[in-house]
């Protein structure tokens, strides 16, 4: 438990978050590049969709990250509300723009994929609509943070919205099973017979893992900036910059 206590210390976090971020960035970028390259170049062409299916390698990792990011914000939000841990508050605020941008990416790439496959950019079906609501939840967290003057109250409001909004995550995930939608069913998380052959699946898993590591990296970078701002009048921040 001692390390946990130390990690809660803001100067300690500021110091170690930089090497940790780099340690996430390097394998994250390598895996993402490897996965996308494998998907674009090496994976066999899809027998139904042709080469259009290669949008999958950016669409699915983005969509996965949109759900992973929001879930991590909800967990951090719960920690912030229960234990009033400042770093958890900062995590919620720092992860929101990263999550929002990848949700946007999932929606846009899905739309671009939908045009040649479904014949339309957009339909109001369960998967697409619930993912759009996720984008609004992210934007809500960002807007709430900007709207409330006191950083403490702002962070607590954001934490609360993250926790309440997480109900949307299982709805998005199961939307393709619960309702009739145009969107195809699950391919990766399906049990039993794999819905994709390994040569197609393997790059996808690499890209998704790479994106997840990159999410950690980018969120840590945002946290460092946010932490400096919140602590700008504190003695430890002044000391960090007077030594340099």
């Amino acid at each position: 438990m001692l390390w946990l206590h130390r990690f809660g210390s803001l100067p300690y976090f500021y110091r170690v978050s930089r090497p940790i971020a780099l340690a996430l960035a390097v394998p994250g970028v390598l895996l993402a590049v490897y996965g996308v390259y494998g998907g674009l170049v090496n994976a066999p062409v899809d027998y139904q969709q042709g080469d259009a299916f290669r949008i999958l390698y950016i669409h699915v990792p983005s969509a996965w990250l949109s759900l992973f990011g929001y879930t991590s914000m909800a967990i951090a939000g719960a920690v912030a509300l229960v234990w009033r841990l400042k770093l958890a508050e900062i995590f919620v605020v720092a992860a929101a723009p990263v999550g929002a941008s990848f949700t946007f990416l999932a929606l846009v790439t899905g739309s671009i994929w939908g045009k040649p496959m479904w014949g339309t950019w957009w339909v109001w079906d369960a998967r697409l609509t619930s993912e759009l609501i996720l984008l609004f939840l992210y934007l809500g967290v960002i807007a709430l943070h900007n709207a409330i003057e006191s950083p403490r109250s702002a962070a607590r409001a954001c934490a609360l919205l993250s926790v309440v909004g997480v109900i949307n995550v299982p709805i998005i995930h199961f939307s393709v099973e619960w309702w009739n939608t145009l969107h195809q069913g699950p391919t990766v998380t399906r049990f039993g017979r794999p819905a994709m052959e390994m040569a197609m699946l393997w790059p996808l898993l690499c890209a998704a893992l790479g994106f997840t590591l990159m999410f950690g990296w980018l969120t840590l970078w945002n946290m460092r900036a946010q932490l400096l701002w919140r602590e700008r009048r504190s003695r430890w921040v002044k000391k960090v910059f007077s030594d340099a």
């Binding site: 042709g50 259009a52 990263v98 946007f104 040649p116």
Partner: peptide, 22 residues
Amino acid sequence: MGGYAGYVWSSYAIAAVVIVGN
């Protein structure tokens, strides 16, 4: 891209912009 170049490459271009922005 088997005739889907516009769709595939625009998806990846937008992704690159979003990631660089982040």
